[in-house]
Amino acid sequence: MITANGKAGDNKDGVGSEFLAFTLGSEEYGIDILKVQEIRGYEAVTRIANAPEFIKGVINLRGIIIPVVDMRIKFKLGTPVYDQFTVVIILNIGGRVMGMVVDSVSDVTTLMPDQVKAPPEMGSTFNSDYLIGLGTIDERMLILVDIDKLMSSSEMGLMDKMAA
């Protein structure tokens, strides 16, 4: 369970938390499944002039204009490739609907508290503020992203202006 301070693994009642697993490049990430509204195939977005590069643009989702972030660009993971596996994960975070482009989604995984480790200290070269921790399942490792913190950071405030 993710606690009020945003950290996983503090859950002592033995109940697991569910994460949607997705890939960016060769790494596998996970976000809290409760933040996911739907998953859609990638479709062209309408680019907004002067928007930061990681904000791909906006799409019309059943009459609602929502901003879309390309997570590969956001995390500086090389040039994104859009193919038949590329998807947009539609998120609902604090009443705001937004999309994030990822290379692919794989499954929903339940992690028990003892399967989630604190993120390693990386010094100033890497901002780990957006990480909940590392989830391990056998030989598989998920980088667990605190999507609330990431999508509510100051630079993401620009997305609200774009959708308006």
Score class of each variant (00 low, 15 high):
I65E: 03
G99K: 06
D114W: 03
M98D: 01
R72C: 04
V81H: 06
I89G: 00
Q84Y: 03
R72E: 07
M112F: 03
F85Q: 14
I73L: 15
G95R: 13
V101S: 03
Y42C: 04
I65R: 01
A44I: 04
I64F: 08
V88W: 01
V45C: 13
I73Y: 13
L91Q: 09
P113Q: 07
R47M: 10
K56I: 04
V88Y: 00
V105G: 09
R96D: 12
L111I: 01
R96F: 07
V105Q: 03
D70N: 15
F85E: 14
R72S: 04
D70S: 12
T79V: 05
K76R: 11
Q84W: 01
K74P: 00
R72L: 01
P113G: 07
I93M: 06
D103P: 06
K117T: 04
V116E: 13
L91H: 02
I73K: 14
M98G: 02
M71G: 00
Q115E: 08
V105D: 09
M112G: 02
M71R: 02
D114I: 09
D114F: 03
D103T: 12
R96E: 13
I55N: 03
M112K: 02
T86G: 08
K74H: 10
N50D: 11
G95Q: 11
K74R: 11
E53I: 12
L91S: 10
D70M: 08
K56V: 10
M112Q: 05
P52G: 10
V69K: 01
M112S: 14
K76N: 13
P52W: 05
I89N: 04
I48R: 13
I64D: 15
T86S: 12
E53C: 02
M71Y: 05
P52R: 14
Q115L: 00
T46Q: 09
D70A: 11
Y42T: 07
Q115A: 10
F54H: 14
R62S: 13
D107E: 15
D70R: 09
Y82A: 06
S104F: 09
P80E: 14
G99T: 05
I64M: 12
V81T: 15
I48Q: 12
V97R: 13
I59F: 12
M71K: 02
D114T: 03
F54R: 01
